[in-house]
């Protein structure tokens, strides 16, 4: 009984905000004390197609930045984290990895900004990718750190003594075993990048207009209907990732056992 209550509680706590956002995104004119908006139509969604709205553009810019950052951090982090995990200076490297989060990404962005301006990277798509990489990379290292352990090292060494080259060992042993860690890192870094606002706004200098930046703009303009509309776009990829994670990865793992 308790379990069911908790399950329903969880579904409602996730489902209600999503439904509320959807309702807001199709709403118009909501004066006090009306319980619901007075008009409901998809005219707000037509706003997505208008060339001056640039919401679609913002969506694809965000997608491009987040996928790039997630891909780069996941692949480079995999190799570097292995080196760090087996290094004698592991603890020192891990303390360094926490620094961006102790200082907060926005403060890091203020520190970076000068260098991005003199290198001409400020206000550019690649500048934002590099800035987000600098923040997300330590996060990737922290995610991977627990994955590398003495047992995995022994399995790797065993593969070598069985005749496996480094490439063969990565391809046939380490990568299949690290599938979950890789997916976890990719999803987490994607989400960090996708919802990143302060650093993106500062390094992007208002020229790189991501979806998160657009949402904040609508919020500051007190345009709740357009803010809700862009929020619907904003939660779409995370929901999709959650579905892929549950439907394919978790399910495949269970059937393999």
């Amino acid at each position: 009984m308790m379990k069911k209550i908790l399950q329903y509680g969880l579904i409602i706590s996730i489902g209600f905000p999503v439904l509320f956002l959807l309702m807001l995104s199709i709403g118009r004119r909501w004066p006090y004390p009306a319980l619901f908006p007075l008009e409901m139509s998809f005219s707000n969604w037509e706003f997505l197609q208008q060339s001056d709205s640039k919401l679609f553009q913002a969506f694809f810019i965000s997608l491009g930045i987040s996928l790039s950052v997630a891909f780069i951090v996941t692949s480079i982090g995999f190799l570097i984290s292995k080196f760090i995990a087996y290094s004698k200076q592991r603890n020192t490297f891990l303390v360094l990895a926490y620094i961006p989060y102790l200082l907060s990404p926005v403060i890091m962005a203020v520190i970076f900004q000068y260098y991005f301006i003199i290198t001409g990277l400020a206000g550019s798509f690649f500048g934002v990718i590099i800035a987000q990489f600098l923040i997300a990379f330590p996060f990737g290292i922290i995610i991977y750190d627990n994955f590398w352990n003495s047992q995995l090292k022994s399995i790797e060494e065993l593969s070598y003594t069985l005749g496996g080259t480094r490439i063969q060992t990565y391809r046939k042993v380490l990568l299949p075993l690290s599938k979950n860690a890789i997916m976890l890192c990719f999803f987490q870094v994607f989400l960090v990048s996708w919802f990143e606002y302060g650093l993106t706004n500062l390094i992007g200098s208002g020229k790189v207009r991501t979806l998160t930046v657009s949402v904040f703009n609508f919020v500051t303009e007190a345009n709740i209907f357009y803010a809700a509309l862009s929020c619907c776009l904003l939660i779409l990829p995370p929901m999709l990732l959650l579905y892929i994670n549950k439907r394919f990865i978790f399910f495949v793992e269970k059937t393999n056992q």
Partner: peptide, 18 residues
């Protein structure tokens, strides 16, 4: 190690779980 044709077996079986 891969050139020696000497296999080292640990206390644990260490089968490849996948």
């Amino acid at each position: 190690p891969q050139q020696r044709n000497i296999v080292y077996l640990y206390q644990e079986a260490l089968l490849f779980p996948h």
